[in-house]
Every structure is written in C-alpha cells, then in structure tokens.
Amino acid sequence: MRYDLVDLKLFLAVAEERNLTRGAEKAHLAPSSASHRIRQLEDALGTPLLTRQARGVALTRAGESLLRHAREVFAQLEQMHADLAPYAQGIRGHVSLWANTHATHTFLPMDLAGFLRDHPQVSVTLEEHTSPHIALAVAGGEVEVGVVAGHVESSGVELLPYRQDRLVLVVPAGHPLEARRDEPAGLGFGVVLDYPFVMLHAGSAIHTFTMNAAAAQGRHLNVRIQVRSFGAVLRMVGAGVGIGLVPRSALVFADRERPPTVLELSEPWARRDLQICVRNRASLSGFAVALVDALAKSAEA
C-alpha cells in the first residue's frame, strides 16, 4: 500500500466536512488534486471510501473504519510530539511512575510539584493503576518507580515507607448510619453495602479495590453515581446522593457548607500505608533515585 500522512490528513478533512471541496480547502489542496489523491488512496486500500452525492460525500463502511483509525494515528502523532517536546526544551531525563488512586489524588500532586520544581531537567509520566498491577510492573521492569497501598504480594521488589492514611466512610448529614459514628470498633464493610454509593469512575484503582472488597463478602455495590475525583465524591455525598469511601487525607476537599459525616471502618484493609515500590534501588537511573529520595523526604517532612 502506498499512501502518506498527507493522504490521511486529506481524507480526515473530507470525511469531517462531508464535502470534497471544503475538505481540500482545509487540507490546503486544490479540489482536483484532492480528488486524485482520494482515488489513489482508495486504489491503495482496494476499496471505496466515499460515496459521491449531489451535495457532498458520504462515508462507506470502509471509510468509517479508516476515519476512526486516522483519528487514532494523528492522536498518537500529537502524543509523540508532546513526549519529544521536553527534550528540545532542555529536558535531560525522564522517570515513569505508576501509583494507585489514593496516592495519585492526595499526596503525589504536591510532592511531584516540589520534585519537578527542584529538578527542571526531569520529566515524569504518572499513570494510575491498582497496587498489585504496579508491583508486577515494577518487578518486571516495565516501570521504574511505583507507589502502592497496603500489602502487595510480589517478589523481586523493594518497598520503602511513603505515607500513612486510612480509608473512611462518608455519609450525608442525617443518614441512618450517622447514629453509629461513635462505635469504638468502627463499622464492618458488610454493614454499609445496603446503601447506594458514590464512587470514582470505573477503571480507577480504588473502584476496582472497592468492588473486590464487596465481592469478597459475596455482595455487589449499589453504585448510584460515578465521578472523577475524591472532591466530587465528597460533594455528592454532602448533597445527599449516597455514601462514599475516601482516604482521610482527601477530607480537605469536602464542601464546608455541607460537610459529610465521617465514620471509621473496622476492616484491616482500611489502613492504607502507602509505600514506594522499586525493583532494585541500586539499578535505578539517577533521576529515578532522585525521585525516590524526594518522595521519601516529603513523607518525613
């Protein structure tokens, strides 16, 4: 197959405009040249991409498929440019960091801001994953540094203390569970599963963790609404939408006018000791060592 990015860019413009002339103008080509390139692209792919109509063009099934892939191609190219741009600006090092939802939404933003301010020549890629996945990725050399919560069963990694926190239950004012806020031992997770939950979005590490915790009790969560941050969870709970499970450190994001009621959980997994996870500190790049040291130092402070 012989075609290039100019052909794909032209096809994308024509497909989005649903008009050959306007698409050619958008791609800075003459209509005759654009029509010739589209025919060559169809010949190269061996199938019609457009159906010519009186007032424009329509996509064939093959054309719809190519449009989807072309958008993905150009999105990947933009990401490539974004990844390479820092090196042209003097960036000399890069560290990959995976962390669970808890760390990503609470402690890491401030800690990474301090690290990047002190190390302007370094860039960091942060991805959110579950703790077991992070430990396996670090052990396999897929990622240099991780931040995990609780006990992770993975050989071949070193764990360093990072932060201490707890997951707590938050309920709206006047909720039936509010009367049990002073129970010394805290609430068992099974007690709260009859009530609708406000959850972080599906795919977030804490969403997966909470679903698994309910499944371990042979139950399913009643998810009323899914949101994108702990702050949104707290505001939804304060507004009476449902109950939620958040780190104690996230309570600073609660709406002061309608703060939720905080209840302790008796479950052992409620304690969320965050740990820095590396495969072998001695084998880390210098920039990764600097990041590990900065995270450990911020925890001490």
Rank of each mutant, 00 (worst) to 15 (best):
M80D: 01
V95Y: 10
E78N: 14
H28K: 13
R55C: 02
S65Q: 14
Q53T: 13
A54E: 11
Q76L: 08
H36E: 05
R71G: 13
H28S: 11
E78R: 15
M80I: 02
S32E: 07
L66S: 01
H28W: 10
G90T: 13
A70P: 04
V57F: 02
S35M: 04
L77H: 06
T60E: 07
Q53P: 00
A85D: 15
L49W: 12
D43A: 11
H94F: 09
L50W: 01
L84V: 08
S32Q: 11
M80T: 05
Q53L: 14
A85T: 14
I91A: 15
Q89H: 09
V57L: 01
R92L: 08
A58C: 06
R71P: 04
L50R: 00
A75K: 06
Q53H: 10
E78L: 12
A58V: 05
P86H: 02
D43I: 05
L41S: 09
S65E: 14
Q79A: 15
A85R: 15
R68A: 12
A34W: 10
R37L: 05
Y87F: 14
L66Y: 02
L49C: 12
I91L: 14
H81G: 07
E42A: 13
D83Y: 07
Q89Y: 03
D43F: 04
R71N: 04
I91E: 15
L41G: 09
A58Y: 05
H94S: 11
R71A: 02
Q89L: 11
A75I: 00
L49F: 15
A27R: 04
E72T: 10
L59I: 05
L50P: 01
A70H: 06
Q89K: 12
E42I: 04
L49I: 15
A62V: 01
G90Q: 09
A85Y: 14
E42T: 07
Q76A: 10
A54L: 08
V95Q: 08
A85S: 14
Q79C: 09
Q40E: 11
Q53W: 09
A82G: 06
Q89F: 03
A44S: 14
G63Q: 00
P48F: 03
E64A: 08
T51G: 09
P48A: 01
A82R: 15
A88R: 14
R68W: 09
T60W: 11
E42H: 08
L66C: 01
L29D: 04
A34M: 14
E72W: 03
H36Q: 10
R37C: 05
F74K: 12
A75C: 02
A34H: 11
R37S: 06
V95H: 02
I91W: 11
T60K: 12
P31V: 03
R68P: 08
H94K: 12
T51Q: 10
S65K: 13
M80N: 00
E42K: 08
E42N: 07
L45C: 11
G46P: 03
S33T: 12
R52M: 02
T47F: 06
A34V: 12
G56F: 00
G63T: 00
R39I: 09
R39F: 10
R55P: 03
H81S: 05
L41M: 15
R55V: 04
S33K: 05
A34R: 05
